[in-house]
Design a protein around this nucleic acid. Sequence first.
DNA 1: ACATATTACTTTGATATCAAAGTATTTCAA
DNA 2: TTGAAATACTTTGATATCAAAGTAATATGT
Lengths: 150, 150
Amino acid sequence: MAPSTSDPDRSYGYQSRATHRAFDRLLQQHLRQHGLTNGYWYVLRVLWEEEGMSQRELARASNLTESSAVIMLDGMQRAGLVARRKDPADGRRQRVFLTAKAKRLKPKLLPVAGELNALAASGIAAEDLATYLAVAHRMRANLVAALETG
Amino acid sequence: MAPSTSDPDRSYGYQSRATHRAFDRLLQQHLRQHGLTNGYWYVLRVLWEEEGMSQRELARASNLTESSAVIMLDGMQRAGLVARRKDPADGRRQRVFLTAKAKRLKPKLLPVAGELNALAASGIAAEDLATYLAVAHRMRANLVAALETG
DNA sequence: ACATATTACTTTGATATCAAAGTATTTCAA
DNA sequence: TTGAAATACTTTGATATCAAAGTAATATGT
């Protein structure tokens, strides 16, 4: 393999990590003013769209493992953001719901997502942004397929 | 702002996180066979290119904060991968060097970077891959500029 | 020279994350 | 119907990561 794929500037892994870290740090800077952590944010983003899913579904939608989701939800429950209710039809499932407090945060905080994305995208052609999303999506699919294989 | 920028599939933040996580998990799967952690890998990638930099320089090159770098290097030192030597000309600086053991790992492990990148890129047009890198680079610059502003 | 500012690293306390092993509940096949 | 398998969640122990405050060494202005 030519050096091109291990040179950091040309490494998709390196660049995706660098982009993510920059997003994550800026997100943290915004959320701390509202007393939220990044981890809570990722879960709230999902729950603001749809409440009442099982922890497993929520973990998948939030891109967390199930054990990470348990820990996150423990914290969010203590912070008064979510409530867990056992599914009456299946005692194994814990369905997750937002509290009134978490619902009130939505209009204040959801716009932050748009702001950060707009900021990141500034000065970049719309066509290139679309390509970025498509490539990211395909790379993830390729990598997840490899993860499951081996 | 239109919903387009908060819909996960169209959110650059969401997609960059998802891509990174997939890379990171697959990397972990590969490295564990060699007894290395992802954190050590990121630092080794830098040191395999250039030894003897100060911790601050190394932290910047590895995309870590200085305090994270300290913790990582403590572990790497215990694992016999690096040695720290005080700069004779400036007693504040700790210069970081690879041990023989870490140097021996390079030919075995460096190719992993190329393999994962090739795997991630499979089925994607070269032109689109180039766009991905350019967009990632620019986004990071935009975000870092915002971080520094406040 | 000496007090102050700057620089480089370290410590501390917190969140984020996972894999592996463990527990409780439901499903299913004989 | 009952025991094994599958499912859903939890616990445990580890790494990864950061911000803020702390320590040590050097540089700077007077």
